Simulated assay, not measured.
Amino acid sequence: MSQKKDAFSHPLLVRAADHAQVPQQSQSHPLNPASLVRGLSLSELTGLKRLGIHLLKVAPGKESFIFHSHQSEEEFLYILSGRGIAEIGEERYEVGPGDFMGFPTPSVGHHLLNPFEEELVYLSGGERREVEVADFPRLGKRLVRFGMQAAIYEVDSGHKLSFEEE
């Protein structure tokens, strides 16, 4: 097996030096005004269809998305740098570099917050199934997604609240 010493480029390889050239996207969860995550989808850059792998950053004082649980898609978080507070079920844990969280389905509710002064950087990944149900237990709401179309419902009433395309 030969190795090239020069800058090797391949559509299935994303080098760390390439990150600076790829525009980062910002995203927030519509049900959480404190949510603000920026980063990039490594899986999309390499064409992965069944897995989502994202390099994400949460600024000081911000949160990842919203406390949620999954019914069919497993998810993981791996902290690269900074510190955060992981909400897992009703417990809170300080997390830092090298800490890993895995959420098999049906998952317990989980969420990441950054109350610290340093940016929190982590890898987030999981399955990309055609159908997913995610609950927002603290809000009594449920997201149902078929492909790229998603709707949010009140759990108790079953009435549809909104419809959105991802």
Score class of each variant (00 low, 15 high):
M1R: 12
M1F: 11
S2C: 08
S9D: 13
L13Y: 12
A16T: 11
Q24Y: 12
Q27A: 13
S28Q: 07
H29L: 04
P30E: 12
L31I: 00
P33Q: 08
G39F: 05
S41W: 09
S41Y: 04
L42N: 03
E44A: 07
K49L: 05
K57H: 10
V58M: 10
A59S: 13
G61I: 02
G61W: 02
K62E: 10
S69F: 04
S72P: 00
E73Q: 09
E75K: 03
Y78H: 14
I79Q: 04
A86C: 13
A86E: 05
A86H: 06
E87A: 10
I88V: 15
E90W: 04
R92N: 03
Y93E: 06
G98P: 03
D99V: 08
G102T: 08
T105G: 06
T105Y: 06
S107G: 04
S107C: 01
H111I: 03
H111S: 05
L113V: 09
F116K: 10
E118P: 05
S124Q: 13
S124L: 12
P137T: 09
R138C: 13
L143G: 06
R145W: 00
F146I: 15
M148E: 15
Q149G: 05
A151F: 13
A151K: 14
G158F: 07
G158N: 08
H159V: 14
S162T: 15
F163P: 03
E164N: 14
E165P: 02
